[in-house]
Design a protein around this nucleic acid. Structure first.
Length: 611
DNA sequence: GCGATTTGTCATGAT
DNA sequence: CTATCATGACAAATC
């Protein structure tokens, strides 16, 4: 507790410094595409200033860290038993500063990673599409500007004493980003969706209005951050870049993670607030797990690591730990994920050398709790590009899917989360890709890996992702009047409205399809029953026919026998019997009976009639 | 792994 | 014109 108090004080100092930085000129303009070059210059100047500030901060933090030691299990800082060991790391303090600044930004209450994620989720959909490219450019143009807010570690550039020795190695070896061009292209396509743009614009306005952000004028500030955050997944590497410390600590893993150029640049370039924000978020996402997990699943890896690296990791984790300890990790998961669960993934990622490490943590953050979102995200991208959550999940999933979820998954499992959760994002992405019709290689690749989990209702996921304030049941089942009334009560952006309409349409159509199939089945059953009855009727009639034929035949026989009997009794004038072959008996209309010769039969009958 | 069935969704036409 | 319903067709999921 004592340590926390000290930390808070330190954070206040950092916060002040940070605000100063902001005042100095960390403006949204930095993100503006047009202002890139200007910003570039400004950033260089800022870098110098930042370095100075960083030194001050480092000293302060060092002092604090010297007294504090991170408890891996609890994630809390406690008075150091062995102060000497950790002294070497100035970087961790930097992270602390970041965290502090981060918290300060949010407000009195430290803004926790979860909060940021939520904010991201809310704002991202709104974020202007334009910002994205801008942010990228800016990042490229001004790599160092972020330093002010960002921990020096994050900054790739500063060769200063600030950067610890371990950092450089991982960075340099970083292979080309694993993100395939296809992924980037897919992502760009998503971003370029008109719906997404609308969403982004809409939400941007909303966020600006609602946001009590310390920076008064810069909506972009947030956007870039969010954007950067959103993009992070693509550039898993970026995260590593952003938080070189951890990377450095983790030998192979970090190296494996190659930050995409854009992402790296983005991180560095993002304006102070943004940069800090994004960097912090990223760091938080990735680091916390490391620090927390350090003992558990990653131990093996850590064990391999040199003691210095382990110490570094611990220190670095310090900031993250604080964040987690302070911030309710649960909130973090937009869906339901627990910070701890998330942590494992991230840790696994970090500890594991796989490039996904960074990505996995992010995923876990979203995916664990909200894999449901992943689907929604997928679809949201289709329908609603704006939803931050969806973006997150997608981005992560996209980034990670292609290569290897396996390793991270295993790690995550060690942490305690089921692998399935990790896989889910992929699956959702798959769906998304398919649904969207963006059958980019990354998306379609993994068709083999199909969902093992029970799929959550898509529309509910979508609704969650877009934070639609009513239940899907209500959306679907309310009468038109009530539905319109409800819609009028909630101010929804275009994306939300479109989604609500789609949900209602799909829901009703689903019911209609069910009824239709039910009716069809009923019709089939009815027709089958009718067929059976007709068959029975047929059988009955045939049987009756046969019976009638039999009786008819019998009657004919009786008649014939009777005829012969009568005929045999007839005698002519000489008393001879008539031959049945020569004569026949016929009855006239008046009832009299005539014996007619067969040959003359007709003639006789005529004669009889004539007479 | 494959085929059959179920289910969700979309497109389209009717109401 | 819009919303809803009905239904065939398709694809994914499930058995």
């Amino acid at each position: 507790m004592m340590t926390e108090v000290a930390m808070m004080q330190d954070m206040d100092l950092i916060d002040i410094l940070w605000k100063q930085d902001i005042d100095l000129g960390a403006c949204r303009e930095v993100f503006d595409y047009n202002h890139r070059q200007k910003e570039h210059e400004l950033q260089r100047q800022r870098e110098l200033e930042e370095e100075k500030r960083l030194h001050l901060l480092r000293e302060q933090e060092k002092a604090l860290l010297a007294q504090l030691q991170l408890d891996e299990e609890t994630g809390e800082y406690i008075p150091r038993a062995q102060p000497g060991a950790q002294l070497q790391l100035p970087i961790p303090p930097l992270e602390v500063t970041q965290n502090v600044s981060f918290t300060d930004e949010s407000s009195d209450q430290a803004m926790f990673f979860d909060d940021y994620l939520e904010l991201l989720a809310e704002t991202f959909p709104v974020a202007e599409v334009e910002n994205i490219p801008v942010s990228l450019d800016t990042t490229l143009a001004v790599p160092s500007s972020s330093n002010i807010l960002m921990s020096p570690e994050q900054m790739p550039l500063p060769p200063d004493s600030l950067t610890p020795g371990p950092l450089p190695p991982p960075l340099t070896p970083l292979p080309a980003p694993r993100m395939s061009p296809d992924l980037e292209q897919a992502w760009m396509e998503l971003l370029s969706l008109p719906e997404l743009q609308q969403c982004l614009n809409m939400q941007m306005e909303d966020t600006l209005e609602t946001n009590s952000y310390p920076l008064p004028n810069n909506p972009e500030v947030q956007n870039p951050n969010f954007y950067a955050m959103a993009n992070i997944p693509e550039g898993e590497i970026n995260s590593s870049v952003v938080c070189p410390e951890f990377i450095g600590t983790f030998d192979g893993s970090v190296s494996s993670m190659s930050p995409p150029n854009n992402f790296v640049q983005m991180d560095s370039e993002t304006p102070q607030l943004n940069s800090n924000f994004s960097s912090e978020n990223i760091c938080d996402i990735f680091y916390p797990p490391v620090s927390l997990e350090g003992s558990s699943s990653q131990q093996g890896l850590e064990g391999n690591q040199s003691p210095t690296t382990s110490e570094i990791s611990n220190k670095s984790s310090f900031t993250h730990m604080e964040l987690y300890s302070l911030s309710p990790g649960e909130s973090f998961d937009s869906g339901n994920s627990n910070p701890g669960s998330e942590m494992p993934d991230s840790d696994s990622g970090l500890s594991s050398n796989t490039s996904r490490n960074s990505s996995s943590p992010t995923k876990s953050a979203y995916g664990d709790g909200s894999f449901g979102y992943s689907d929604s995200d997928m679809e949201e991208l289709d329908h609603n590009p704006g939803s931050a959550e969806s973006d997150y999940s997608e981005m992560f999933s996209l980034n990670f899917q292609p290569d290897d979820l396996d390793t991270p998954l295993s790690i995550s499992t060690s942490v305690g989360q089921p692998q399935q959760q990790n896989k889910e994002p992929k699956q959702y992405q798959m769906e998304l890709a398919e649904e969207n019709g963006h059958s980019n290689a990354p998306f379609t690749k993994d068709k083999n890996k199909k969902r093992f989990y029970v799929r959550l209702p898509r529309d509910e996921q979508r609704a969650k992702a877009l934070k639609i304030p009513m239940s899907v049941d209500m959306i679907i089942n309310l009468p038109v009047d009530d539905f319109n009334e409800m819609m009028s009560k909630h101010q929804l952006n275009d994306a939300q409205l479109a989604l609500v309409r789609d949900i209602r349409r799909r829901g009703k159509n689903k019911v209609a399809a069910q009824n239709c199939r039910k009716r069809k089945m009923e019709n089939i059953l009815g027709l089958e029953g009718e067929l059976d009855s007709l068959k029975d009727e047929k059988e009955r009639l045939l049987s009756e026919k046969r019976q009638n034929a039999t009786s008819l035949k019998e009657m004919k026989q009786q008649l014939n026998s009777l005829y012969l009997e009568v005929f045999s009794m007839l005698r002519d004038e000489q008393g001879n019997s008539y031959s049945p072959s020569e004569y026949s008996l016929q009855q006239s209309t008046n009832g009299s009976i005539f014996l007619v010769p067969r040959i003359k039969k007709t003639l006789k009958s005529k004669d009889n009639h004539l007479h």
